[in-house]
Computed example of a mutant assay.
Amino acid sequence: MFRTPHPRALTPTRNRALARAAGAAVLSVALAACGSAASGGMSGMDHGASPAAGSAGTTAAGGGHQGHRMPGADAATADATTSTSAPGVPAGAATGAPGAERNGYRLSSEVTTLAAGAPAEYRFAITGPDGRPVTAFRTDQTKRMHFYAVRSDLTGFQHLHPEMAADGTWTAPLAAPTAGTWRVYASFVPDSGAGRGTGLVLSRTVDVPGEGASAAAELPAASGTATVDGYTVAVEGTPVAGRAGELKVTVSKDGRPVTDLQPYLETFAHLTAFHAGDQAFAHLHPEAAAEAGSTGGPTLAFHAELPASGDWRLFLQFLTGGQLHTVGLTLRAG
């Protein structure tokens, strides 16, 4: 069994036409919202930079986190053994955070705790059905691995693109996490073995001991607008659980439409969603790609199909002037 090296001192840190039938499966959203980071190409699932834990804001572009589609699967179904149902979710709905294992693939790590308030390296590996570390991954939205970390109360969102060593060990540089329980998500497409070409999302939890670890921040009320770094993001559309729909996102600044959005992970924005209560994971796919050197905005359309009703915390990331901005808002699905 693969054993990952013990971390140093852990600290936080598309096929364009994806199947639109997510049915009762937890959808993988193509645009992920991550904290500010450097921009990056879009092939593998590239999401991220290392935004500060507990905040959404800007950072210099460089290893950014953009939305991405995973070939062969738009949904990440939760493992029954690790999922939990959320209040108000219809019986039988495929909800809950993805498990650490699916279809023989497993997210393996020796990291069980992280130190609060200090940067850290989260080391892990993806083992295949044969029990050995997987080293062949397809590039999706410019990245071979999209890695997310979010606190159980859906604060402290981080979207990263870790590096892999020759032995299959990945290292994700986490920004300093706050005390509490965090869940990490690995989104990837293996390029070998029985699961070749199928997008997967696996996750597991990690504890960050310290003062306030048991305290949970109240989820912000559902709202169609949010601001970050002087930009205002407005979201139009009311998704209905289990039904395909569309969300329109408009970006403005000082009351004027923003038309200089830069490509980020092959799109002009990356949107990721997490279900309140059970931390189910979803990707909202943009309906248009972004060509290198082009600019976009102010309005972006996303294909949305959320598997469960209730509150979802959305994290939208977009790039302007080489700076990655991350904004979070709460959306309610009927």
Rank of each mutant, 00 (worst) to 15 (best):
Q158R: 00
Y148H: 06
P209L: 06
G131K: 09
G197Q: 13
R243Q: 01
A33L: 12
A19D: 13
A38R: 10
S192H: 01
G296Y: 09
A304F: 04
S192I: 00
G193H: 04
F157H: 03
A217C: 12
V249S: 00
A60D: 11
L306T: 10
T295G: 15
R69C: 01
R123K: 09
L284G: 05
G195H: 11
P220T: 04
F302I: 03
D191C: 01
T225V: 14
G242I: 03
L114W: 00
A38T: 07
T82I: 06
A234D: 11
A19K: 12
D140C: 03
D167N: 14
A53P: 00
A60R: 09
H285G: 02
L284I: 05
V26A: 12
Q158T: 00
V235P: 07
F147R: 02
P209K: 04
G40A: 10
Q279K: 04
E163K: 07
V258E: 07
A166G: 14
F315I: 10
E287G: 02
G23L: 14
F157P: 05
P220D: 02
H161Y: 03
Y231A: 13
I126Y: 04
T142P: 07
P173W: 04
G67R: 05
A221S: 06
G199N: 05
F281K: 05
F157D: 02
G296E: 06
T84P: 02
R102K: 13
V240T: 01
A37Y: 13
D207S: 05
K143L: 12
P90F: 09
A60N: 03
